[in-house]
C-alpha cells in the first residue's frame, strides 16, 4: 500500500473531529485547552500534506505551519495564565461552575 495524500487528510480530519468533540463534552478547562491544541495540530498536518504531495509553486504551506505553531503557543500561554486566574477566583477549573453571568 502506498501512503498518499488521502491518508494524511483522513488523519487530520479525524484529529480535528476528536478535538471538536472534546471541546463539546469535556468540562475541565485543561482538557478543553488540550483539545484546542489537537484541532490546531490537525491543521498543520493538512498544510504539510498539501505542500508535500501537490505541485506547489513555493513552500508557503510550511511557512504557514511555522506561524500557526507560534500562534498556538501564544494562545496556550495566555490560556494557562487565565486558567490560573480562574482557579484563584473560583477555586475550580470546571467550566460548568463559571456561571456568574446570565441573560
Amino acid at each position: 500500500m502506498i501512503i498518499g495524500i488521502t491518508h494524511f487528510l483522513i488523519i487530520s480530519a479525524a484529529l480535528f473531529c476528536i478535538g471538536l468533540y472534546g471541546i463539546l463534552i469535556k468540562r475541565n478547562l485543561f482538557s478543553i485547552l488540550m483539545c484546542i491544541e489537537l484541532m490546531l495540530n490537525a491543521v498543520n498536518i493538512n498544510l504539510a500534506a498539501f505542500n508535500y504531495f501537490l505541485p506547489m509553486p513555493d513552500l508557503s504551506g510550511q511557512v504557514m505551519i511555522l506561524f500557526s505553531v507560534a500562534v498556538a503557543a501564544a494562545e496556550v500561554a495566555v490560556g494557562l495564565a487565565l486558567i490560573f486566574r480562574v482557579y484563584r477566583d473560583f477555586r475550580t477549573v470546571n467550566i460548568d461552575k463559571l456561571n456568574s453571568m446570565k441573560g
Binding site: I36, G79, L82, R88, F90, I95, S100, M101
Partner: peptide
C-alpha cells in the same frame, strides 16, 4: 471575578 470568567469564555 467576572473579568476572569469573561476572559476564559472568550479564549475558548
Amino acid at each position: 471575578k467576572k473579568s476572569s470568567e469573561a476572559a476564559i469564555k472568550y479564549l475558548i
